[in-house]
Design a protein around this nucleic acid. Structure first.
Length: 551
RNA sequence: UGUCCGAUGGUGUAAUGGUAGCACAGAAGAUUUUGGUUCUUUUAGUCAGGGUUCGAAUCCUUGUCGGACAACCA
């Protein structure tokens, strides 16, 4: 008997619709506007839309909502497609709202003929005033009662380019006193003499979101049109257009968008960070964009798992970024190749190890994978260990190296610290240790048990590599609660770059391999990496219960 | 002082009138040649009042709190 996983509210709706025969199959869509890069919020929407279709044997269209030529670019179209594929989803059809411009125009003509739309000469200020406020009704435009013939002619003239930008708009004739602001004669078309990334200069009038989205859904026979909460008030209009046009009744459902701690999730703000150079670009590894987390080393599987775990509901939420980190660690732990890299070295001399002697030791590539194989790690008389792995005066539960104390060097020998060498200023320059020859990893007959195991590198075999260490982009957990400019809360220490000491096996690191630098975290090669200078991004640190409990 | 949406441990998310469960985070312990992994245990919750009912997180009611809506953006 397997435990039945409970359904989210959208799955319940879909199951009900299928059960009652409302639909034979479902068709969803993912509708990005090509004016920015996809972020984790989009990932949630993608997993939802594609996930629903996958689960219930339906399909998902990719439809670019490209109704505003002044902000949209082909560059974004390509990055969006790339990100969706990377996440692991395949769309049924690649479509564009701009494919429907002619149809949409004809829909508008239908509404004009029905007396449900009119051309308005009012300025945008005047229209704003006519709208009223949420608590006071609006007033009718003086142009509201133009004849059908006049409206038809003027709308045709709008299309023909006889007017300048902003001179006229087409509005739906609904109800200027409606309690829902979106129903107070909303704009359907505006004039923009602008070049469109797909239709070029064919059009100088462009439909507004409300007159494009629902109709596009309907044209494609989308069964479930899933969007975020802020579109709830638009639903009345969505349904109104479909009803008046008597076209396929797609239905809109809304869920709460994703918010994460210590970051922002709005294209506008992300664009600002890019434009004002607070980050290196849309794919800066600190960005919550898909291109950013990809470069940082997050795996598609870990992001899908994250989206699964955060659930779907209608209440506002703020997800702990720690959950994302948990998901990526869980995934990476299974696949990452283990390597040893010392960040802040302190020299260790094994005084009883013959000068000039070297030996190759075997070390497992991945203890989680029995078939992962081994690699060779050179061992010699002079080594580096991590500065923080030695303390001259050690507290009680300190398992690492200290005078007179023993530790295991991973995959090598147990050593004992005999002497601390300092320079004139009292700074520790090296540690003199002795090793236990019988304690060799894999053939230990010493019978000695030590609590601590350290990573290390052989001093003369060391390979310098650059690591880029990331911290949260912002200093505060909840940016929506922060007063003033969100950029005031940027964390100045979100990026640390350092050159560190790696074991030689890392020379052969490849882009498609993931690495765990023992006790340091999970790393992946950055695109800036070259043969001459390897560059690694830290995806996430390892879970650390020691520094936490020692505080 | 309008309309709409929402409110369950610290954070998310279930329970669809019948034992408030799961995950992350936190705490304690075991295992460990990564203070990682794994395993065990554990802390902590139904916004408030009233009502219906044998029985309410769930239904009704009145409040409270949070959010959305007045772009020729999507």
């Amino acid at each position: 008997m397997t435990e039945e996983k409970s359904l989210n509210f959208l799955e319940e709706i879909v199951e009900k619709d299928l059960r009652e025969g409302k639909h034979q199959a479902i068709l969803t869509r993912f509708p990005p506007e090509p004016n920015g890069y996809l972020h984790m919020g989009h990932a949630k929407s993608i997993c939802l839309n594609f996930g629903l279709a996958n689960k219930y044997g339906g399909k998902t269209n990719l439809r670019f909502d490209d109704t505003n030529p002044v902000t949209e670019e082909t560059e974004y179209v390509e990055s969006i497609k790339n990100d969706i594929r990377w996440l692991g989803f395949n769309w049924a059809e690649e479509l564009y709202a701009s494919d429907y411009f002619e149809k949409l125009y004809q829909f508008a003509v239908v509404l004009i003929k029905k007396g449900l739309a009119y051309v308005d000469d009012s300025t945008s200020d005047e229209i704003a005033r006519q709208k009223g406020t949420p608590t006071t009704p609006g007033t009718n435009s003086p142009y509201r009662d133009r004849s059908v013939e006049e409206n038809l002619q003027m709308f045709e003239d709008m299309r023909a380019g006889k007017y300048k930008d902003g001179e006229k708009v087409l509005r739906a004739k609904v109800d200027m006193a409606h309690p829902n602001m979106h129903m107070r004669d909303p704009l359907m078309y505006r004039i923009k003499h602008a070049h469109h990334h797909r239709t070029g200069d064919r059009w100088c009038i462009y439909p507004m979101y409300d007159f494009a989205h629902g109709q596009s859904d309907s044209i494609e026979n989308i069964t479930h049109s899933i969007c975020t909460l802020e579109f709830i008030p638009h639903r009345a209009l969505y349904d109104w257009f479909i009803e008046k046009l008597e076209i396929y009744p797609s239905r809109q459902y809304e869920f709460a968008r994703l918010n994460m701690t210590y970051t922002v999730m709005s294209k506008r703000k992300l664009l600002q960070l890019v434009n004002e150079k607070h980050v290196s670009g849309w794919d800066d590894p600190r960005m919550p964009t898909l291109s950013g987390v990809r470069r940082r080393g997050y795996t598609p599987a870990s992001i899908r798992e994250f989206c699964e775990r955060i659930g779907v509901a209608k209440r506002e939420n703020l997800i702990d970024v720690g959950l994302l980190e948990f998901c990526v660690r869980e995934d990476l732990n299974k696949v990452a190749q283990r390597r040893m890299v010392v960040f802040d070295p302190i020299k260790v001399v094994i005084t009883n190890y013959p000068e000039g002697k070297e030996e190759m030791l075997q070390s497992e590539n991945n203890p989680e994978d029995p078939n992962g194989g081994n690699r060779e790690v050179p061992f010699s008389r002079e080594l580096f260990i991590e500065e923080e792995d030695f303390m001259e005066v050690a507290p009680k539960k300190y398992f690492r190296l200290a005078p007179g104390q023993m530790v295991r060097l991973k995959s090598a020998y147990i050593i004992k610290c005999d002497e601390v060498i300092k320079d004139a200023s009292g700074k520790i320059t090296e540690l003199h240790c002795s090793y236990i020859p019988e304690s060799k990893s894999g053939s230990d007959t010493s019978g000695i048990h030590v609590k601590g195991t350290l990573h290390w590198v052989s001093a003369k075999h060391t390979v310098p590599v650059e690591v880029r260490l990331y911290d949260r982009l912002f200093k505060v957990e909840d940016l929506s609660e922060a007063d003033g400019d969100f950029k005031d809360y940027l964390n100045p220490e979100s990026l640390t770059v350092k050159t560190v000491y790696a074991e030689p096996a890392l020379i052969n690191a490849t882009t498609n391999e993931r690495y765990q630098f023992l006790r340091k975290g999970y790393f992946t090669i950055d695109p800036d990496s070259t043969k001459a200078k390897l560059v690694f991004n830290r995806t996430v640190t390892l879970r650390d219960t020691w520094t936490k409990s020692s505080k």
